[in-house]
Structures are given as C-alpha cells and as structure tokens.
Computed example of a mutant assay.
Amino acid sequence: MTPIVTIDGPSGTGKGTLATLVAQRLGWHALDSGALYRVLGLAARRRGLALDDPEALRPLAEALPVDFASGRVILDGEDVSEAIRAEEAGMAASQVAAHPAVRDVLLDWQRRAARPPGLVADGRDMGTVVFPRAPLKIFLDASPEIRAERRYKQLKEKGLSANLPKLIADIRERDMRDRTRPVAPLRAAEDAVLVDSTQMSIAEVFDRVLEEVRRVFPELVARSS
C-alpha cells in the first residue's frame, strides 16, 4: 500500500503549507484537496451557476477543465493559482463542498492521487472519508482570531485591502458550515493526532508533525534523510 499522511483542519490553519513542507521533506506527492473545491466554486461562479444547486454543479465537477502542473492551478487554460486563494473562492468552495453529489464525483479523483512513493493529503475529510485507513492522521487547529490575523497579514503583505473583523466573522461562518454539513463534516478522525497551532510557528508545527511521521514511518523517514 502507498504510505499516506492526512492533514485535516479548518480554514486558515496552514494545512496546505504544512502538507507541502512534509511532502518535500519525504519526497512524496502532495494533494491539496481544497484546491479542487475552490476551482469548482470559481468555475461555477464564472458560469453563473448557483452554488446551492447540486444538479447544475455535478456535470461541471465531472468535466472540470482543471490541471495541476508545476505547483500551478490551470482552469480552462488560465492560471488561477492566485484567484482560488481569494476569500470569495474559499467561501464558494465551502458551499459547493456541502453537496453529496459533488463530493462523490471528486472522491475518486482524490483517491487516485495516492501513488508511490507516498502521499501527504490536506483537506477537511482526508482522514475521515477519503483515506480512512491512512497510517497517520493529523488534525491541525487554531483559534478563529489567530487564523484571521494570519490571513489579514497575508493580504496586507500582498498590498490588498482587508478587514479583520470581517475575516473573523467569515472564518466563523465557514467553520460552522463545514462542521455542520450533513456529508463529510469537518471533524477529527478518532485516531488523529491533534495539533493546535494557535501559539506555534509553522516551523514548530512542522517539527511536531515530523515527529509523528518518524514514529509511524521510521524507515521511510530515515531513507529520505
């Protein structure tokens, strides 16, 4: 079996950055499952589709013209790597991800990402639904306020306008929607390792997770050193 590490958690905890760092350290593949839903949400908006209409969204998901190449996300031939990281794209992703019909379509796509030498997958249901038998599952969390502050700084560094109270409200709203949706709600798997990054830097989180990777995959980590 292909070795798999899953990293789940709410928006803004740094799952994507952490997954990329761990995958690079091990020489494994990385799966940003959230990017799929963000691309779908962006594509739906551009086509004028209602985000609460699963019957309209499913055909789009089945034929989603997306390509992940060299760290970039290409939709309909356009590089949307930056566009899908906007707050609006994140909210749209949360809405389309709530539909069982949409999740069913993208489930197989995600599972096919598991291939040698290994996979680090981040999202919201990687350890509970997509890869429930993964040997190592991480649940990364942080307070809404800290996550909003991190996002605020990112936007400001890019020269973009940002409103901290609105970011906090948006994150709380998305958390509630993700945790209460009827299908694949955001939650930690029973056997997940819980990591609260509220008071931790990304380097500290990385070191903490790498400890768990060494514990579960000692030979693989030694080989990648």
Rank of each mutant, 00 (worst) to 15 (best):
I4S: 07
T6C: 05
I7L: 14
G9D: 12
G14P: 04
T17A: 03
L18H: 11
L18M: 01
A19D: 06
A19H: 02
A19P: 03
T20H: 15
G41R: 09
G41Q: 06
R45Y: 11
R46M: 14
L49M: 00
D53I: 11
D53K: 05
D53N: 03
P54H: 11
E55Q: 15
L60Y: 09
L60P: 07
P65S: 02
P65R: 06
V66K: 06
V66Q: 02
F68I: 04
S70L: 15
L75T: 07
E78R: 10
V80M: 10
E82T: 12
E82N: 11
I84H: 11
R85G: 08
A86K: 15
E87L: 08
E87V: 14
M91H: 14
M91N: 14
V96N: 09
V96A: 04
V96C: 00
H99I: 01
V105D: 10
V105G: 05
L107H: 12
D108V: 09
R111D: 00
P117E: 04
L119G: 15
L119C: 11
D122T: 06
G123T: 01
G127K: 05
V130Q: 07
V130E: 10
R133A: 12
A134T: 09
I138E: 01
S143Y: 06
S143R: 06
E145T: 11
E149G: 13
E149R: 15
K153M: 13
Q154D: 08
Q154R: 02
L155F: 13
K156S: 02
A162S: 08
L164V: 02
D170A: 07
D170Q: 09
R172S: 11
D175R: 00
R177P: 03
R179V: 06
T180L: 12
T180M: 12
V183F: 12
A184F: 01
A184N: 05
L186D: 14
A189P: 00
E190A: 14
D191A: 12
V193I: 10
V195D: 05
M200E: 10
I202W: 02
E204G: 04
V205F: 03
V205I: 04
V209A: 02
E212W: 15
V216Q: 13
F217N: 09
F217W: 05
V221T: 13
R223C: 07
